[in-house]
Structure formats: structure tokens, C-alpha cells
Design a protein around this nucleic acid. Structure first.
Length: 464
RNA sequence: GACCCCAUCGUCUAGAGGCCUAGGACACCUGGUUUUCAUCCAGGCAACAGGGGUUCGACUCCCCUUGGGGUCGCCA
């Protein structure tokens, strides 16, 4: 049988890292088994679903190259199908109309909670043998409830949590159609997974409590049961739930914050899954190695520092041209008018080993394209009369050189000898003037890339 | 409150009863390389939540306690 997985987000907010990791695992499991990976938008909540959120989901999936099979499925396009099956359940006697108002339900919940009980619908409209139902009020539009079995238990072997048992008496008769006739989540999921032949339902463990309800529904529909895998949550680095300001933001925020998609995939996949001691792996490798035997059942904390480390790894190992394409727009955002491709490539090569983020990367090499003023603190630290005159002598000598990287660096070494100074005594003032900072790679190489003309220009404007 | 899930270094994890003197990675610390910073290299610190069982033997299996998380919507 062909393995079919799906990612089924609801377009009501951001697609955050927890959601994305679910998508990654579902994608990887389908790939690994040469199966299908479906993207389904669960937009039955018209109030909260937005087209923008749909776009965010698409953009995020595309950025991470999590390609799905077939067209995107929208639940709102399938309403008729759900209604048809709801009718069937009513006909079978597995569903019934309930006229309890929201207000009454709220009161019921309140009382039950006060009594220390689990809030549950009390089944007052549930048809039963020899039971007299109340007169249906004509001022209330009924919802449709599913007749959950009263006895017995639901049991399944979860692919990550193992054996799970829930007593049916813990469950109540869930609403499958609202009073306006529209179907609700638990019902739509069941119908879709069945119709789409989903074999493995992979989702966050916040859905764990929905699973027994869904299994009951599936049984009533006489549909086959899929396998279930409930992934543990991702927690913020303080051990708390992900919040908007921490991690729950759109995945696209990670792109905007300077992360490479390869790094995000790698980090998230490693968070909660392992392949021995492997820390660095590509999406392709993931799709070859992925299995549920090595998915952790406990929640994991998100660690930005490790993400940064992985991001640095990918920056170090990404082709210069590709990095250049990513950096160019950022330079333009920083008011750089003309970008010399050669200079950009050289700057990237000089810097890529040390960068853990594409944004700081582009900021760090900004000075190649436009003069960056050092802080007063830096000026005071490195630029006194003595060092200024050294810089002045140095640039005069530099002008005489045949312009190669080697020559520039050799000249600086000779200069230090001649002047009987230590290297930093000339390197730091030069860094301050040319780069506007005291942290740079080889200053000789930087001067070489920037060119003698520009170097002299910056020095002259500085020395006045 | 009820129900469900979870529990190895600060963090992510390896671990399928003897391979464990508990391994790797991030972070941190020390040293080396370096022209500053970073990269890189070498080394170091650091954990089986507690208590009972089962067993010749338990990080691993069972139970309890404790702690954390989730769910209890005409949301998904």
C-alpha cells in the first residue's frame, strides 16, 4: 500500500516552527517510503481563516522546499462531501440533533468544573432506547452531535508515544455540524484523511485527545484506521510554550532574520529526531534516514545558539555566488548604489567562515561598498597623532605597489619591520579607518579588495 | 479539577537488561593557531528526578511519588 502523509495547517495565524517541524517529518516520512505528501488547508473556521495566512503557509513550504504532491486541498471546497456523510450518520443513528444552546452549555461546564468533574456534554438530546426526548424548541437551530459509544475503550499504538488507551466514557458527544450546518474540525479531518487515503496521520501531540474521537468517527463511517504519530511540542528556551515573540512567529521570519533554509530544516529535524551522532545532514539525507523509531517522545526546547551554529555551518559551505544573490538585496536595502560583483565575491570569501547569520554578514561587509564611520570610542582607542602619521606613511608606500594581494600583505609586513612596530599598531588604525570597526579578517586582503584608490580616499578624508 | 502524554549533562540527544568508567553536539571554560575578532585544532566541566519492585545484573522493564506539558469550544 502506498504511504500517504499530509500536513494540515489551519490558516489562522503564523506557520510557526512547531508546525513546520510537523511538516518536515511528514514530508520526510513520505519521501522515505516513496509515498505521497499532501498539503491540506483546514479552513472551515471562516471567522479566523485568512487568505494571507494561506499565502504564508505556501511561502514557508516553498522556502524550505517541502514540495507536496498534487494540488493544495481546501476543506471549504469539500463542504458538500462532509454534509453528505453527516446525513449518512444521522440516517444510521450515529448522529443526532441537539438543541442545547451555547448559554446552557456554558452553565453546564461551569457547574461540572465547580464539582471537580471533567466538563462534558450531558447527552440530554441523545436518543436512547426507551428514553423520552424533550420537545424540540423552534427558536433554536440545532447542532449535530456524534453518538460516541458509551462503553469500551479506544486503543492504538502510536508511532511515537506507544500504546495509548482512552475510555469512551471520558469522551462526550462531539459536535460535528454547527447550528449553521457547517461541519467542524474533527469530522472534516476524518473524512479527508479517509477520502485522501492518508495512511499515516502525523501531527502535534496537542491533538492526542482528538484521536480517540476521530477513531470512533472512522469506525462509524466504516473507514479504515490510519496509523498515528503524535509529535511532542517544541518549547521556547525558557521551557515555556512558544509565544508570539519567541518562535511562534512565521517561519518567514527566520528567512528575514538571516537564516538559510537548509539550516532551519537541519536544526528542526534534529530537534526531536536523531540518526546516531549525526548533527549535520541535508533534506535529502533526512528523507533517506527518517524513521519514527528515533523520534523522541518528550518535548524539546528551542535553542537559538545551536541554530546559529548550524547556520554558520551552511554559510561556510554555500557557494559564493549563491551567497552573493542573497546578500545583494540586503546591501541595496542599506543604500548601496553600485555593487561591484568582483568585490562582493571577494568580500564574501573573506568573511563567510566567520558569519552565523546572513543579515550580520551583509552588515559586516557593507564597508566594502560604502564608507562606514567608526565610533568615537574606536577613534580614541586607535587614532592618535602617532598612529595617524604611520597610516599616512603607509598609504604613500602602498601607492607604489604593484597591486596584488600578496604584494599588499608583504608590504605591510615590511612596513612593520621598517617602522619597528608591532603589527596591530598599523593594522588596528587601518581597520578603524577603512572598515569602521576593529574586527575584520586580514587587513591586507581587505585593502587589496577595496583598491588603492578607495583606500587612499578614505584615509585622506579621515586625516583631513 | 478530570483525563492524556512526558522525564539522561544548562540545552538537543545516543542508549532496545550486561557493550556505560553513560557517548556525541550546542553552550561554557582552558590552551594552541591567527594581525584584532571569528573560523579552525587540542583538552576540560557537566546528566540517568526520587522511592520501591522484577532480575544473577537496570539508564533500559513494572509500580508509586514528584516535577513538566497537553486537552477539556458551535477553534483547529
Amino acid at each position: 500500500m502506498e504511504i500517504v502523509t499530509r500536513f494540515a495547517p489551519s490558516p489562522t495565524g503564523y506557520l510557526h516552527i512547531g508546525g513546520i517541524r510537523t511538516a518536515i517529518f511528514s514530508w520526510a516520512y513520505a519521501k522515505k517510503n516513496k509515498g505521497k505528501f499532501i498539503l491540506r488547508i483546514e479552513d472551515t473556521d471562516m471567522e479566523r481563516s485568512t487568505p494571507e495566512a494561506v499565502e504564508t503557509i505556501k511561502a514557508g513550504m516553498e522556502w524550505l522546499k517541502l514540495d507536496h504532491d498534487g494540488d493544495i486541498i481546501y476543506q471549504t471546497h469539500r463542504i458538500e462531501r462532509y454534509k453528505e456523510l453527516i446525513k449518512l450518520l444521522i440516517k444510521q443513528g450515529d448522529a443526532y440533533y441537539c438543541y442545547t444552546s451555547k448559554k446552557e452549555l456554558d452553565q453546564l461546564r461551569e457547574i461540572q468544573l465547580k464539582e471537580g468533574k471533567k466538563p462534558k456534554y450531558d447527552g440530554r438530546w441523545r436518543p436512547e432506547k426507551n428514553k423520552e426526548l424533550p420537545e424540540a424548541p423552534n427558536n433554536i437551530k440545532p447542532v449535530i452531535r456524534f453518538k460516541t459509544p458509551k462503553d469500551g475503550e479506544i486503543r492504538w499504538k502510536d508511532m511515537v508515544k506507544g500504546e495509548i488507551v482512552v475510555q469512551n466514557e471520558e469522551l462526550d458527544d462531539l459536535i460535528i455540524a454547527r447550528s449553521d450546518g457547517t461541519p467542524t474540525y474533527n469530522f472534516c479531518v476524518v473524512v479527508d484523511d479517509w477520502d485522501m487515503k492518508v495512511t499515516h496521520v502525523i501531527r502535534g501531540d496537542d491533538h492526542l485527545n482528538n484521536t480517540p474521537r476521530q477513531i470512533n468517527l472512522l469506525k462509524a463511517l466504516n473507514a479504515p484506521l490510519p496509523e498515528y504519530a503524535h509529535l511532542s511540542m517544541i518549547l521556547a528556551n525558557d521551557g515555556q510554550k512558544l509565544s508570539k515573540r519567541y518562535g511562534a512567529a512565521s517561519v518567514m521570519k527566520y528567512r528575514d532574520d538571516g537564516y538559510l533554509p537548509e539550516a532551519v530544516i537541519n536544526y528542526l529535524a534534529r530537534l526531536g529526531w536523531s540518526h546516531g551522532d549525526e548533527e549535520i545532514f541535508s533534506a535529502d539525507q533526512l528523507s533517506e534516514w527518517f524513521d519514527f523509531d528515533h523520534v523522541t517522545s518528550s518535548a524539546a526546547q528551542f535553542d537559538q545558539e545551536k541554530l546559529d551554529w548550524i547556520n554558520n555551518h551552511y554559510i561556510k559551505n554555500t557557494a559564493t555566488e549563491k551567497l552573493a544573490d542573497l546578500i545583494k538585496p540586503k546591501l541595496i536595502d542599506n543604500q548601496v548604489k553600485v555593487i561591484d560583483g568582483q568585490v562582493l565575491n571577494s568580500a564574501i570569501k573573506l568573511y563567510q567562515d566567520r558569519e552565523k547569520n546572513m543579515n550580520t554578514f551583509s552588515e559586516d561587509i557593507l564597508f566594502f561598498f560604502k564608507q562606514v564611520q567608526p565610533s568615537e570610542e574606536l577613534k580614541n582607542k586607535y587614532l592618535d597623532e602617532n598612529s595617524k602619521s604611520l597610516v599616512s606613511i603607509c598609504i604613500d608606500g602602498l601607492e607604489q605597489q604593484t597591486w596584488t594581494n600578496e604584494n599588499v600583505n608583504n608590504f605591510l609586513k615590511e612596513f612593520v619591520k621598517k617602522q619597528e612596530i608591532k603589527f596591530p599598531e598599523i593594522a588596528m588604525p587601518l581597520r578603524t579607518i577603512i572598515a569602521g570597526t576593529d574586527n575584520t579578517p586580514s587587513i591586507g586582503s581587505i585593502i587589496f579588495v577595496i583598491g588603492v584608490k578607495e583606500t587612499k580616499k578614505r584615509i585622506s578624508s579621515f586625516l583631513g
